[in-house]
Design a protein around this nucleic acid. Structure first.
Length: 428
RNA sequence: GGAGGGAUGGCCGAGCGGUUGAAGGCGGCGGUCUUGAAAACCGUUAGCGGGGAAACUCGCUCUGGGGUUCGAAUCCCCAUCCCUCCGCCA
């Protein structure tokens, strides 16, 4: 959510920033502005009436204690009460609409974000490792997995449908090892506290992160008389951990990591990545999440991104890091780095992590503040999140990058302690 | 699923129609005393939104929403959450 005071004072800046996103939001913006003007006209009027009403009530009490007649006072007060009632109803309607409008406006891109119109305008900022040269034609994971009997797509579709998968034997073990490896790295070396959150969240939590009200169709909602959705990412429960709280300045930064499954409807992605594990309705992810003071948030974004990249370095997987252009960023983000891992079968880099600074956008929605040390006034924190990493896609990258001519998979060294010392995955 | 009991400031806890934004305690902050500290004592200490350069000032807030009333933390209704007991249960 954008700050209305900032919006009023920097209208042209806001217009320009929103335009950079490549969608025309001027109608929504004008509507919010008009409602804001109305609100600021009505508020003083209403407060004046309330002040009079309070004074009258005190007067009644005083007159009574002196045994005086109060019927005239009470009469005028009763009339004023009606007027107050009428005005508050009107004001509430205006505020509701204003908030609704505000909730549908995306975050403003940071000034360091390159302007662009599409994904191909994203800018590479660094690259790690060299894609391996194969002496044979590398297979895709959707061939390798079933051949090794560690991924089963057919049985998954029997029990759940398309875009689901079953991991079996060494495949299941590999996924579990990846989760443990990532959590171990982030908790012992990167300073994150591990959280196991609920895997279902309510609509208030989803509004806090920006998934609602605009993107309900991306979510799986629990049917029946429940205000619950399956988590699309651990970002939602982690960010909302401190909803409606004022944190102490010295507590910050707070760093959380969590493993959760993630559930996404993938509405509108028909035909895209239909094969394999790339785009599933359910996938595992280890998430990184930071609450920080505003002045530190861009340093923290670099740190968090480096923490995610470290996973790939340890696994010796080639990757590149992109800064997303203004049009390719998510709704809540002010700046986003995507980390893309090399997939030999596709001869290209594919997204495996997305690390964002949302600045105060989510904090304002979720009402998460902090009181700076020594400072009097509380202010909103900045929140950051990133995948550290998507487990399914990491598993794909390992299968494809570590495959041998015979279809077996070498287990990356860093992972072996988490795989009971196993060094290779081959068919039985 | 059934039967009860709760929700008050950072925390504990009083208040149960009229200067109560809220006693008291704890905690925090400042001071006196002390070589320093502790103890003791004194003082101070909620948030949010308007207006104002500021001093300050107005409004809202006792889980949330609605109602009664000139006036609600206090009375009534609804919701949410928590607790206890019973049933069921990984």
């Amino acid at each position: 959510m954008l700050d209305t005071a900032y919006l009023r004072d920097n209208l042209e800046l806001v217009r320009g920033a929103l335009n950079r996103r490549g969608v025309d939001l001027s109608t929504e913006l004008e509507q919010v502005l008009a409602l804001e003007v109305q609100r600021r006209q009505m508020l003083p009027k209403l407060e004046g009436l309330k002040r009079e009403q309070n004074a009258t009530a005190a007067e009644v009490a005083r007159a009574r204690s002196q045994g005086q007649d109060t019927t005239t006072l009470q009469q005028s007060s009763r009339q004023r009460a009606e007027e107050i009632k009428r005005l508050s109803v009107e004001l509430e309607k205006i505020e509701q609409e204003r908030t609704r409008g505000l909730l549908t406006l995306p975050n403003l891109p940071h000034e360091s974000v390159p302007t662009g119109a599409k994904a191909s305008d994203n800018v590479e900022v660094r690259r790690y490792g060299k894609p391996r040269t194969f002496t044979f034609t590398p297979q895709a994971h959707w061939d390798l997995g079933p051949a090794l009997e560690i991924i089963d797509f057919e049985r998954a579709s029997k029990i759940s449908g398309a875009r689901f998968s079953v991991l079996k034997g060494a495949g299941a073990q590999l996924a579990r090892a990846l989760i443990n490896f990532m959590l171990h790295l982030h908790t012992t070396e990167h300073g994150y506290t591990e959280i196991e959150p609920p895997f279902m969240v309510n609509s208030a939590a989803l509004t806090g992160t920006g998934n609602l009200p605009k993107f309900e169709t991306d979510l799986f909602k629990i049917s029946g008389d429940w205000d619950l959705y399956l988590v699309p990412t651990a970002e939602v429960p982690l960010t909302n951990l401190h909803r409606d709280e004022t944190l102490h300045g010295k507590q910050l930064p707070i760093r959380y990591t969590a493993y959760t499954p993630c559930f996404r409807s993938e509405a509108g992605s028909y035909g895209a990545d239909v094969r394999g594990l790339i785009r599933q309705h359910q996938f595992d992810k280890v998430e990184l999440m930071v609450f920080t003071q505003p002045k530190d948030s861009y340093d923290e974004l670099e740190r968090l991104t480096a923490n995610a990249e470290e996973v790939l370095k340890r696994l010796e997987l080639p990757y590149r890091t992109m800064v997303l252009c203004s049009a390719d960023m998510g709704f809540a983000a002010a700046k986003t780095y995507d980390i893309e891992v090399w997939l030999p079968s596709q001869s290209c880099y594919r997204e495996i992590s997305s690390c964002s600074n949302t600045e105060a956008f989510q904090a304002r929605r979720a009402n998460i503040k902090h009181r700076p040390e020594g400072g009097r006034k509380s202010e909103f924190v900045h929140t950051l999140n990133g995948s550290g990493l998507a487990v399914g896609r990491t598993l794909i990258a390992i299968l494809e990058n570590y495959q041998e001519a015979d279809g077996s998979i070498i287990v990356p060294e860093a992972l072996r302690p988490f795989m009971d010392g196993r060094t290779v995955i081959q068919s039985q």
